[in-house]
Structures are given as C-alpha cells and as structure tokens.
Amino acid sequence: MSALEVRGLSKAYGGVQAVRDVSFSVDAGEVVALIGPNGAGKTTCFNLLNGQLRPDSGEIALAGRSVVGLRPHQVWRLGVGRTFQVTATFSSMTVRENVQVALLSHHRKLFSLGKPAGRFQVEEADALLARVGMQQQAARPCAVLAYGDLKRVELAVALANRPRLLLMDEPTAGMASDERQALMQLAAALARSERIAVLFTEHDMEVVFNFASRIIVLHGGEVIAAGAPDEVRANPRVREVYLGNA
C-alpha cells in the first residue's frame, strides 16, 4: 500500500479547471517531485492534499485511509507534515517555541492549562532543531530569522509528529545554492531513514533532478508525464512545455 494514493483528483475555481483528473502515488521512503510551469496546479494540488481545499471529485488516501473532507488539522493528525511556499511560522515565538507548539499538538496538550508551555519537551524540541541544524538559534525570535533559516524551522516543525507524508511546497525558494543542496539532502536522508514519503514542488531543476527518485509533471492542471528523472527528461511533451518546441 502506498503512503499516498491520489485518484482522479479535480478542482475548479469558477470556470478555471485548476486540477483535472490527477492520479499518482508516493511510497514510503520515496522522494517525488511535482513540477510544472507557473499556474500548472502544483500548489492547488498541495492544498487539496492537506485539506485546505476540498476537491470537486477524486480520492486521496493516506496509507489506505481516505482524507477527503477532513480539515487541515485533522489531516495532520493522520501524519501529514507540510512546509509552505511562503514560510508560515509563529512570529511572536522563539524558534524553540515554534517546535514546542507542534510537539504540544502531537502530544495532544493543546487544551492543557498546566505547566508553562516553554518548559514542555525542551529536549525533544532541541533534538528536532539539531536535525535541521538550527539548535544554535533555538532561543532567537522567529521574526528575526533569515529566510533560509525559517525554511529549516518549518521543516523541524513539520517533523514534530513523525509524519508519514511530508509535503514541501518550494522548499528551497529564496535560499542560496549550497543551502538548497543541504536542505534537500537532509529531506532525502530523512525519507530514507524514517521511511517518510516526501512530495515536493520545485522550480530549481538541478534540485529536482538531483534528489527526486520520481518526477510528476503537471501542465494546465493535468499530469502530462510521470516517471524516473531520465524518462521525464527525455519525454517530448515535457520538452515542449518547458522549452516551447517539440
């Protein structure tokens, strides 16, 4: 059974068909890239997967369990972590507190009125931060971080509930080249060691071809190609879309 199984997914906004009859699957431990030109439907696809949008039709299953109709916070409970195209963190909190809040949620303590949140799971939070190389900055407010560092905090937050599926929407946008490689290396290593299924969108083709074991190409809301990097690279339809000639 695949970690993520998508069948016949469709979503329209008014008259615009943003996603049309999209089907694919991602296995545990696999790193899959979802690529396509701007407006191809990548972010819509992600928003459908984590419950921010409701599909018009189609099926989404996590390890065999349907998640269609669930809200984002419910989807997360089933093991879906997510990073956003524009980073979303809690700006009034420190780096460590951001991770602690995710851990509180994981341990179902969101309505606890007990001991201060800042004393909760400090070691676990720091261990997560260490994995993304942010332990030195644990006490800094999120509001002052560099963009690349925020992306890494988001990754640590997304890992807090040991996800089975990690959705990364343009994880390396706004980062320097060597930072990009490092972040994706980390994600790929996590996927292998923790058997996490990773689905990411990316504009940087170097990153895509270096790290994806499979690539799905969206165009106009439809899947026009899917397969190993070499197959996709050789696909005439993909070349047409990206290079404008056959």
Partner: peptide
C-alpha cells in the same frame, strides 16, 4: 493560562492560522 500550552496554541492561531492548522491546531 496565557503561558500554558493552551495560551501558546491560541497565540499560534493568531500568529499564523495557516501554520497552526497545518500542525493539528483547530
């Protein structure tokens, strides 16, 4: 209460509703 896990989760929802929902906060 503001310093408790409940208060932090509340603040998280104010800071970024999107991120809060994406880590399981209703």
């Amino acid at each position: 209460l503001i310093d408790s896990p409940f208060g932090y989760a509340l603040r998280a929802g104010r800071d970024s509703p999107l991120r809060a929902a994406a880590i399981g906060i209703d």
